[in-house]
């Protein structure tokens, strides 16, 4: 057994767990934070996406013990205009992939702002306005079987534009 303390949504939480417990299972089954979802348990669907010190990760591929002393944000700790944009644009149906899509999008927007390259943008290119193509490329790690992709892309684009307006004004 291993002692672990993780800051989850701003609150320090301690656990005594076997080392093989994934971060996702620790969040869901130990902390009762069921916002992050388990769709595949192998990093293929993105439903378990959370933010670790602001960066998006698949929490099913992470061991809880690796995150000792780190800051984890789950959907329960997110309060962002992106959430209402998802509802307004119907970027969801069953809702199972939604927490992962939202956390992933928040991480992605930060990556984009920091100039992280993608298959769509060259490494040294000036990141201009976030295009639909760019969003699709960068969000392709998050599956949605209901097929809410169009609404998700719109919600992200709207929110990104909002963000840009705030910065420029």
């Amino acid at each position: 057994m291993v002692d672990v303390t993780i800051r989850v949504n701003g609150q320090a939480r301690s656990l005594d767990i076997p080392p093989q417990v994934s971060l996702l299972d620790a969040l869901r089954e130990r902390f009762g934070l069921t916002g992050p979802k388990k769709g595949c348990d192998q990093g293929a669907c993105g439903a378990c996406t959370v933010l670790a010190d602001g960066e998006r990760i698949n929490s099913c591929l992470a061991l809880a013990v690796q995150y000792d002393g780190r800051e984890i944000t789950t959907i329960e700790g997110v309060d962002d205009p992106l959430q209402t944009a998802f509802v307004r644009n119907d970027g969801l149906q069953c809702g199972y992939c939604t927490p992962g899509q939202i956390c992933s999008a928040l991480g992605m927007l930060a990556e984009y702002k920091d100039g992280a390259p993608s298959a769509v943008t060259e490494p040294d290119a000036d990141p201009g306005e976030l295009t639909e193509e760019e969003i699709r490329e960068r969000m392709s790690g998050n599956l949605c079987r209901c097929g809410a992709y169009n609404g998700i892309v719109k919600a992200i684009q709207e929110t990104a534009a909002l963000d840009t307006e705030e910065v420029s004004s």
Binding site: L33, K38, V87, R88, L92, G95, P99, I102
Partner: peptide
């Protein structure tokens, strides 16, 4: 109309079948 369970699903409060204790 926006779907009525949209807020629950975008804030993580919607509980699915494996999430009842």
């Amino acid at each position: 109309v926006d779907r009525v369970d949209g807020v629950a699903k975008t804030t993580g409060t919607a509980r699915f079948s494996a999430e009842h204790t």
